[in-house]
Design a protein around this nucleic acid. Structure first.
Lengths: 229, 229
DNA sequence: CCAAAAGTGTTTCACGTACACCCATGC
DNA sequence: GCATGGGTGTACGTGAAACACTTTTGG
């Protein structure tokens, strides 16, 4: 059933940069396109915004449909609408980025049998459309934001060791951090709850596990603080 | 001439939060709506994105058409697309914020004879649509960004005294700053060029004038720095 | 000469940074 | 007993914060 307007309208889409954390890499989730344009190329998961859903809802729906992911941390990134970014017609896309715990979710093949796979962010394949630029933008944003908001916990399992937490920051920020200073700083913030548990099945001394304490964090935000690493 | 699509499409608009700086207030530029919905209400300048222009271009064009402003600092803020934010139909808007030197530009009545006027940001009138929320978001963003990027210079005339610069930060951040510490900090950054000029026509000792040195600033950015106040 | 704002240094304290060794555990 | 990572404290330097008086100019 056709829909008619007085002036031509751009198509509106969402695209999601989904970050996941590996033992030693930051990864991004890509899907392989089945159709033209860019058939066979890898691309960010995404799709059209329906007229009866918000943009956030569209992003979550597409993520669910194309990758099986739900209940992830999701944040709007930027809206790009350069002419010619889609060879077919004028398409404006609202880009999002998402953070997921790699272990939690088994990535499913997409609904229409397209491939989905994780790639290291520093060595991605050539992407469709202007998705390289969007990925780069998302990475910059993550690196910036992780320094003053505790986003990173979304990438870790609920219980984690301080070493794992430190590794996460080192991977995202792409620079080594001092172990003692890191612990001093992160513990002094008082947003970690020390658990009576340690790592299991490790071939060395087991590390104590911690949990992110959202309640203390909210308190901290109210009072004003500095999360810099 | 009508345009037809298989699925209904949202209308795409831009809205601009234009900030200007007064002697003692941060102001925002609003236009009074001539038509329904919200006829007579004040609103952010903005309008439809044409299918053959980028979103940035649309924002600049609307600013020019509705307020006569051109060549201003302009940055994308956020994209909002809640259902029902426009009572007529589904409208997604890409919000921008702009910084202008109040003295430079005489605000013109808009093309279609609507009113345009400056309002203090802390005491704006009731706005049309969800423009209050967009204004609040823009203000938060400005307050955040001004602390690590020298955005503020866009609000001042090319030549300014240190006191004026300090007043600007105090107005935006809504807190007093220490005069000596402020001068020490801002001069130590080395991004101000000291001029051989002083204020004119003041009823007291004339202050020395400075100019923002973009070249040094770019250098500083490369090396990594901290602009915090 | 008075009013008004310009301009200027020092001390204190908190925090970031650099740095090395012993401990617990599994194999 | 050895390999592997876990866990801990101190000294130093930089930068933020607090703080008050003299100078210049116009009226």
């Amino acid at each position: 059933m056709p829909h008619t307007y007085d002036y031509p309208r751009a198509a509106l889409t969402v695209d999601c940069v989904v970050f996941g954390l590996d033992e030693d890499d930051l990864k991004v989730l890509l899907i392989q396109r089945g159709q033209e344009p860019f058939a066979g190329r890898w691309a960010l998961p995404g799709g059209f915004v329906h007229v009866d859903e918000t943009i956030d809802q569209a992003a979550r729906r597409e993520l669910q449909e194309e990758t099986g992911l739900s209940k992830v941390y999701l944040e709007q990134l930027y809206t790009v609408g350069d002419l010619g970014r889609d060879p077919r017609e004028r398409v404006v896309t609202v880009a999002y980025y998402a953070l997921v715990r790699l272990g939690d979710h088994r990535v499913q093949a997409a609904t229409d049998a397209r491939n989905a796979a994780w790639f290291a962010v520093d060595d991605p394949p050539r992407l469709a459309f202007d998705h390289d630029a969007i990925l780069a933008l998302a990475l910059t944003r993550l690196q910036g934001k992780v320094r003053y908001q505790p986003l990173g916990f979304e990438l870790l399992p609920p219980k984690f060791s301080l070493t794992r937490l430190q590794r996460m920051y080192e991977i995202i920020l792409e620079r080594p951090l001092d172990k003692r200073n890191f612990r001093k700083k992160v513990l002094s913030l008082g947003i970690l709850e020390e658990l009576d548990e340690v790592e299991q099945d490790v071939a060395h001394r087991a590390a104590r596990l911690y949990r992110f304490d959202e309640r203390s964090y909210r308190q901290l935000v109210k009072d004003g603080f500095n999360f810099e690493l």
